[in-house]
């Protein structure tokens, strides 16, 4: 069982990964996030129709990408450096179990590029390429 809080410095309400299902550092990570109606950002987005903001889906993929690193990210600076070809194909709603898959495309000069896909029960919710700066 991967120690999520031991690996990522993020905390409530911004820790957006609940579980790591598969992990091969430097290659591929599959993580999980369970969406619940009690999450603070869903209170206003939207009051009558809660759905996960697209930018948070990207953040979930970025946090999942943090587990491509073998070592803990505590005490290290990690930033999103680029988002490319982001597509939001279906809404993510309370009750959804989101599967976050990220695969490493390459690294250079302290940056890593990953291809990310968020799905729910086989349907694609979000796909994007992300670059993350490590230091």
């Amino acid at each position: 069982m991967t120690d999520i809080a031991g690996h990522l410095p993020h905390r409530y309400p911004f820790l957006l990964v609940d579980r790591i299902l598969e992990r091969e550092p430097g290659v591929r990570v599959v993580a999980e996030k369970l969406v619940t109606a009690g999450e603070p950002h869903l209170q206003g987005h939207f009051p009558d129709r809660p759905l996960v903001p697209g930018v948070l889906l990207l953040e979930m993929l970025a946090q999942a990408a943090g587990f491509l690193e073998a070592d803990s990210l505590h005490g290290r600076a990690v930033f999103l450096a680029a988002i490319q070809d982001a597509r939001f194909k279906a809404p993510a709603l309370p009750g959804d179990r989101l599967r976050l898959e990220v695969a490493l495309e390459g690294t250079f000069g302290g940056l890593m590029k990953v291809r990310g896909t968020a799905t729910c029960e086989g349907r694609e919710v979000c796909t994007a390429s992300l670059m993350v700066k490590r230091s």
């Binding site: 680029a82 390459g106 690294t107 250079f108 000069g109 302290g110 890593m112 590029k113």
Partner: peptide, 26 residues
């Protein structure tokens, strides 16, 4: 910029099959 550099590294590998492994070669 550095974001373009990583894009180029990936492009060079894909198109020409040449890897740029470290920053010194880059």
């Amino acid at each position: 910029d550095s974001i373009d550099a990583l894009e180029l590294v990936l492009g060079i590998e894909q198109v020409f099959g040449v890897k740029i492994e470290d920053e010194a070669s880059g």
